[in-house]
Design a protein around this nucleic acid. Structure first.
Length: 701
DNA sequence: ACGGATTAAACA
DNA sequence: TTGTTTAAT
């Protein structure tokens, strides 16, 4: 695993925050009468009382454990309250928990770079905040230390000689405020104060408790957060390392809980982290490869250079369900039905992500588990398949089904001919999931980008000699028939849907009633041009290029409906009026003055966090950045390079000097990259692709 | 192949 | 790059 910056002298301040039995807390907040009671969250009540996925600490005292069945739990704890996970479309619906997790992240991201590690865990890099505190207002100068902070657990504190008669909290207070501590300890002390404050804020705002670990790296912070739960925090001073790791079972370390940990035990006789110290780095690399070997060597010493990534949003979305044993799906029709449910959920979440975060997913992947009784190679796995993701529920459904059928043919083998149709030929599907990945932010600082483009707007007709016929052809050639048909690879390329967000028609807007205007801007009118689709069918590699124009009225009704309409309707295609012939892209660039509805959550008020967020873009949470007002000469140079041998909005990246790009403000560079990167052309498409050509990255071959 | 539904990331 | 595998919660 990543061996970024592994230093023994690592003095960062890293926290790992872990929500206590999170799903239970969410349900208890919904239903306060459950608070304080032994409670568990369960899904699928039908069989044996369902499976537990979260257990309150009261219930744990009775020996109730995660992944018990509901019936079992009732036996050991008759009083237990079992709450069902919400169900939608016949499957567990985790949205309540995702949303609750977002509430928490919003608060935890206030003081430093924040990485959402899972639905209920985050890592924080508090180094800058801690350094600032140490410089301005160190704990040793404080007259009072927060109650929450003195409740911290400080590893190795017992070793310190302390005044007799002092209780645990007094000892902690003393440790936190020692003026003769090492710099590293002082930084951790600051971290502990900050985390205590954050946890308190989380509690006040969300009513959720959490536990935390504070250490010099992610690995140790994670380890510590689990040591004292619930609702407590644990600090790992450097000096406590050897004792901590010395006889810690190897499997307790993150990443070593599985096969690698087992191999360490069985093959090398390593049972504790301390045991690892005997092995040279080279030896470990010999056994486990360069990266893993080095990672293990460092781990043994409490060294871990992994950075806290500034990421508040997930990198993928998925929706899946298992169909165990007798419930296995045995007909394509039933698979289609369930895929349809899964795709609806996925599509809904993609819509939300688009609206709330302005991000677009690029890849659709289908996973399935299958069995095939008698066959000899019966243990073959169902292959996962992916293709470019086209927005719109019905399209996602179509594509997912195509992917499934491609996978099924491969799984069953080529001999199993045509339409064994809907009749059970022995196989069964025990699990299905669809997921969307490669999610990238739409350049949210559209305006800032626009500052670097010529403002003149003309249409760019020649590129778009609207080949409506071709479009229609392309539409008919769904990936199913087309690309999967001849046993070849998926060859459909769909260039992303362009979404414009913003005010598109000033005149109209000004004449609108005020409240309407407000509504309008706030609701982010997305204009969606559905994709440009390129198809190249297997052998001939013939390239079709088509444009579909979908236009939403600028009167701006409710966004969501608009989007859905334009996404779903196959008839929204031809609607042209004055904008006919204008590419979506150009319209996109025209609509730049977007009143962008990005809610900047976490507008931080503290100077500390401001300074930290200045240095690095924190996350892809939409930031309404004003930015880079410096009128640069680069500005002019770029404009001159983007000149108008093409329509105003288009440019040929090949003509843009990389050095010029490099001189742009970093943020602009990133935005441009975001535009360019997803446009990379697959090497299966060699011919001139018209408009897409202009978006090819210059140096990326 | 009843430890379900998700997510992430490395590796080939 | 796509698909597979591991791991964690």
């Amino acid at each position: 695993m990543p061996v970024a910056r592994p230093e023994l002298s690592d003095s960062r301040v890293i926290a790992h925050v872990d929500m206590d039995c999170f799903y239970v807390q969410v349900e208890q907040r919904k239903q306060p009468s459950l608070r304080g009671q032994p409670t568990a969250v369960v899904q699928y009540n039908s069989w044996q009382g369902g499976g537990l996925i979260a257990v309150s600490y009261e219930a744990r005292k009775f020996g109730v454990k995660r992944s018990m069945r509901g019936d079992e739990a009732k036996q050991v704890c008759p009083e237990i309250q079992l709450v069902q996970v919400p169900v939608a479309r016949g499957k567990a619906d985790l949205n309540d928990y995702r949303n609750a997790g977002s509430e928490v992240v919003t608060i935890l991201a206030r003081r430093g770079r924040c990485e959402r590690a899972s639905i209920d865990e985050v890592y924080l890099d508090l180094t800058i905040a801690a350094e600032a505190m140490l410089a301005d207002n160190p704990p040793e100068c404080l007259e009072t230390i927060s109650e929450e902070a003195v409740k911290s657990h400080v590893l190795g504190l017992e070793e310190f000689p302390a005044e007799v008669g002092s209780d645990a909290r007094e000892r902690v207070r003393h440790w936190l405020t020692r003026s003769d501590a090492s710099r590293r300890d002082k930084l951790l002390a600051c971290g502990a104060l900050i985390v205590a404050e954050l946890r308190l804020q989380v509690l006040e705002v969300t009513e959720f408790t959490c536990s935390a670990g504070i250490a010099h790296n992610k690995m140790l912070a994670k380890l510590a957060s689990g040591m004292n739960k619930p609702a407590q925090q644990t600090v790992v001073p450097f000096s406590s390392l050897s004792k901590l790791l010395g006889n810690l079972p190897i499997k307790k370390m993150k990443q070593l809980g599985g096969k690698l940990g087992t191999s360490l035990q069985i093959d090398l006789g390593v049972n504790t982290v301390g045991d690892l110290l005997q092995f040279s780095e080279e030896k470990l690399q010999e056994f486990y490869g360069i990266n893993t070997g080095s990672w293990l060597w460092n781990t043994a010493r409490g060294i871990n250079g992994e950075e806290v990534k500034g990421r508040l949003l997930p990198n993928s979305h998925g929706s899946g369900k298992t169909f165990p044993g007798p419930r296995a799906l045995k007909t394509v029709a039933s698979v289609e039905k369930w895929l349809s449910e899964l795709c609806e959920e996925l599509s809904e979440r993609l819509q939300s992500d688009l609206e709330q975060n302005k991000r677009i997913a690029h890849t659709l992947t289908l996973h399935a588990h299958a069995y095939k009784p008698n066959d000899s190679d019966s243990f073959k796995k169902f292959p996962s398949k992916s293709c470019p993701l086209r927005y719109g529920t019905s399209r996602i459904k179509e594509d997912a089904l195509s992917l499934f059928q491609a996978g099924l043919r491969e799984y069953l083998g080529l001999y199993n001919v045509k339409t064994s149709g809907n009749q059970n030929s022995g196989w069964g599907i025990t699990g299905l999931s669809v997921s969307a990945s490669r999610i990238v932010a739409i350049p949210s600082g559209t305006r800032s980008i626009m500052n670097y483009f010529p403002h003149q707007e003309e249409t760019c007709p020649q590129v778009l000699l609207s080949s409506e016929k071709l479009i229609q052809d392309a539409q008919l050639l769904s990936p199913s028939e087309n690309c999967l048909g001849s046993g070849g690879h998926l060859t459909l390329q769909s260039i992303e849907p362009w979404i414009a967000c913003g005010e598109e028609d000033k005149e109209t807007k000004h004449s609108m009633p005020l409240d309407r205007q407000k509504e309008d801007t706030e609701m982010c009118k997305l204009k969606l041009q559905d994709k440009e689709t390129l198809l190249c069918s297997s052998p001939a590699a013939e390239v079709y290029q088509g444009w579909e124009k979908v236009q939403t009225e600028s009167s701006g009704d409710y966004l969501t409906e608009k989007i859905r309409d334009s996404l779903e309707s196959e008839e929204g295609k031809r609607k042209s009026n004055k904008e006919k012939g204008m590419s979506t892209i150009s319209r996109y660039f025209q609509s730049q003055h977007s009143g962008s509805l990005l809610k900047v959550e976490n507008a931080s008020t503290s100077k500390l966090s401001e300074s930290s967020s200045l240095s690095e873009p924190q996350s892809q949470l939409p930031q309404e950045n004003s930015l880079a007002r410096g009128e640069s000469s680069v500005d002019a140079r770029l404009c001159s390079q983007i000149k108008l041998k093409r329509p105003a909005w288009s440019y040929d990246v090949d003509e843009v000097d990389q050095d010029v790009l490099n001189e742009l403000p970093k943020q602009i560079q990133e935005e441009l990259q975001a535009w360019l990167r997803p446009q990379k052309r697959s090497n299966t498409v060699k011919k001139d692709l018209g408009i897409t050509r202009y978006f090819l990255p210059a140096k990326d071959k």
